[in-house]
Nucleic acid binder design. Structure first.
Lengths: 193, 193
DNA sequence: CGATTCTTTGAAAACAGTCAATCTGTGTGG
DNA sequence: CCACACAGATTGACTGTTTTCAAAGAATCG
């Protein structure tokens, strides 16, 4: 499975075979069954996790027990709680697997070491962070300015792969609408086409 | 006015007097009257802008002409459109002054040069970016999981300084609710106390 | 097959948005 | 200095959307 990670790093960050060897020394394979947790509330997030296979989600539980999905991730995405990771503080979130998944974990010290030793990796990470930030700004804009129908439409256009693989009620939670509303919006939307 | 910027960089990033001299060579003073634009839709954002004095806001116009506020900034905050800045693409946003303001602009090439020459600055910037990202994740969570009342309460607790200085209808826009709703939420909330 | 998860549907209630009118305070120009 | 315009805030009545609750229908999995 490391080959998938290697191929990704080669293509996206331009790493050499030499570089990849170093990375491999610091990457840990982890398999998760569907519904298994990668992180639970209260845990400290010690790893950045590359998804080689499968589908993951990060969410928070509110006081009334409702789940609020902050992000999804599939093959070639990363998942972690950056706040907990960076500050070594207990996470407020859960991360679990929506499908049987295979991850490559890189521990914090390792991650920092790799960033120092491989400048290309550092550069690529900065670019990825910038894109993540832009994406979150777009999402905020969607949250504050779109109707439920527009949010749905925007979601399936922005993340068609997620839409195919993720249960509707989780998409609803991600968008901040009830599952019933999203269900209705979707049938209405389908009829329009 | 540069002294304010210098004091900020000294305290937050630990810059030396030496460092600050270099920074000063690359910073440009800009004064804005209330309601003046710093950036308009279609412009490319060429600067990172430090707010030495005043209050700014960044927003988008939707097709129907409604304003949607993405961020506010006051003294010791930065404002820019990172997406436009990083990618050299036309911005989708407006940035304007809510009060007479004084900014220190750092042009892109200068900014990159400073980051290279002053490692402390680089380190501080990375920390700031990380905190910005965390803040945007919190805002998304507020958007998808809070009621209008909770959003309001969370806003005044998170940004009491903004709340004092920014018109209510812009706060409403920031939160994604109508000004009438926010007005009613606020009177209801005030009575509770 | 039975159990669980997921989706859909209907009806009622809660909520937020819209429209229109009014009120306030601020600032500008005559 | 006053009058007027303007930006901002509030209120009421109405409309429309979304949530909630409850129930039932698919789909999936062991």
């Amino acid at each position: 499975m490391f080959e998938i990670f290697a191929a990704y790093l080669q293509e996206k960050a331009g790493l050499t075979d030499e570089d990849l060897k170093i990375v491999q020394e610091h990457a840990m394979l982890k398999k998760l069954r569907k519904r298994q947790y990668l992180l639970q509330e209260g845990d400290i997030c010690h790893h950045h996790c590359f998804i080689a296979k499968g589908c993951m989600r990060m969410y928070r539980l509110s006081d009334d027990g409702a789940e609020h999905v902050l992000k999804f991730g599939i093959e070639n995405w990363w998942i972690s709680d950056p706040e907990s990771f960076n500050n070594n503080t207990p996470s407020n979130f859960y991360i679990d697997a929506l499908e049987d998944s295979v991850l490559l974990l890189v521990e914090k010290d390792s991650f920092n070491k790799l960033m120092k030793e491989i400048p290309k990796l550092q550069a690529w990470k900065e670019g990825m962070d910038a894109r993540s930030y832009d994406a979150s700004q777009k999402r905020i804009l969607s949250n504050i300015s779109y109707t439920a129908e527009e949010k749905y439409e925007n979601f399936i256009k922005s993340y068609p792969e997620f839409y195919k693989r993720v249960p509707l009620h989780m998409v609803a939670s991600f968008l901040g609408v009830s599952r019933e509303t999203l269900s209705r919006v979707r049938t209405k939307y389908a009829k329009q086409l």
